[in-house]
């Protein structure tokens, strides 16, 4: 969990006239998409993510849910950052995140019952998705609401990009379909390994390899 890696991106007190999408603010969104990706670089949010990437549809619902929780928790913690007593900081954060997740869960049960059944406990596990707590601690607690929202959007999208790519390969190879449509023909026999957790790990490992070969990121190991 490289929380220290994100400290330097804290936005210092800036002039009030700064435009909403200044260069610095745009970076908040674009950085997490590749060079500072929450999953492949910051190693956050892998916990519940891999388990839901068997098919594209539930994966996208998961991404939307995480994005929603991330934006609103970052926003509310950022607004409360001056009044939260530091001693109960973690509990307050968890409480707010848990309430947001409970709301998402209720909404999914009402409007996307099938998907909520497939995601089962993994909706609840958004609470402990390290991306959310990680961004709250590393960014929202020290920054104004608007940059915090942008940071949430950026990280949420960075997370979604990886999740959707993993799900793309897993559904294609595992069930021979995309979004439930059989694209590899009726006779394609699904690859069981891709449906199982093993497939997720290996696909993600290869994706990281490809990404780092391209952008030149290296890890001391």
């Amino acid at each position: 969990m490289s929380t220290e890696a994100v400290v330097n991106e804290e936005v210092a007190a800036k002039p009030a006239s700064e435009p909403l999408f200044s260069k610095k603010n745009r970076k908040l969104i674009s950085n997490p998409l590749d060079g500072d990706n929450p999953i492949t670089v910051q190693i956050l949010g892998i916990c519940s993510a891999l388990a839901v990437t068997v098919k594209l549809v539930p994966t996208i619902m998961m991404c939307v849910s995480v994005l929603f929780v991330l934006i609103f928790s970052n926003l509310s913690i950022s607004m409360l950052r001056k009044v939260i007593p530091s001693r109960i900081r973690i509990i307050v954060q968890l409480l707010i995140v848990a309430s947001l997740v409970a709301i998402v869960d209720q909404v999914l049960q009402a409007y996307a019952y099938d998907v909520s059944k497939q995601l089962s406990v993994f909706v609840g596990l958004i609470i402990t998705n390290c991306i959310i707590m990680g961004r709250l601690e590393a960014f929202a607690l020290a920054n104004k609401p608007w940059p915090s929202v942008l940071d949430a959007v950026g990280n949420g999208l960075g997370y979604s990009v990886i999740l959707i790519s993993v799900a793309f390969f897993r559904e294609l190879l595992g069930s021979g379909s995309l979004f439930g449509f059989k694209v590899l023909g009726e006779n394609y026999t699904g690859n069981g390994v891709m449906m199982s957790p093993v497939g997720a790990c290996i696909v993600l490992g290869l994706l990281i390899w490809a990404q780092r070969a391209r952008n030149g990121y290296r890890e001391e190991a």
């Binding site: 492949t40 490992g205 990281i208 030149g216 290296r218 890890e219």
Partner: peptide
Amino acid sequence: PLRGLGITFI
């Protein structure tokens, strides 16, 4: 490029 996280996942 595979060092670290990549090879760990595999």
